[in-house]
């Protein structure tokens, strides 16, 4: 349970048309994700690490997408944001400086 490589990180996103590309991109880039649907909410969990890649989202969206836009989609998260730059957002546990 204490292994940061297997402890679950997660994001909850609003389930709507806008976010479908983001959800699909996350599923494609993170092989071990599990997805749970609740009314209005999609909960995406992965062991240890979860990445959201700009290019993957843009590919599915067919337009430019800034990683800042992820803020429009997110409801909550579990894990540390260990990276948030122009190209990707990474969630993980055990983020020491």
């Amino acid at each position: 349970m204490n292994d940061p490589a297997t402890r679950m990180v997660s994001v909850d996103l609003q389930e709507n048309e806008e976010n479908r590309a983001v959800i699909e991109a996350i599923e494609a880039d993170n092989p071990d994700v599990s997805v749970r649907h609740m009314p209005g909410v999609v909960k995406i969990e992965a062991p240890g690490r979860l990445v959201i890649k700009r290019e993957s989202v843009e590919e599915r969206l067919g337009r430019d997408w800034e990683t800042h836009e992820f803020q429009m989609a997110i409801i909550t998260l579990a894990g540390n944001i260990t990276e948030w730059d122009d190209d990707e957002i990474v969630l993980a546990w055990n983020a020491r400086r």
Partner: peptide
């Protein structure tokens, strides 16, 4: 807020999730 959605309260759901995006 998921419950609000399920009970037909679209405004509260919208407000709630929109607020949550700040909460993150």
């Amino acid at each position: 807020m998921s419950g609000a959605s399920f009970n037909g309260d679209l405004p509260t759901m919208t407000f709630g999730f929109s607020a949550q995006s700040d909460e993150s």
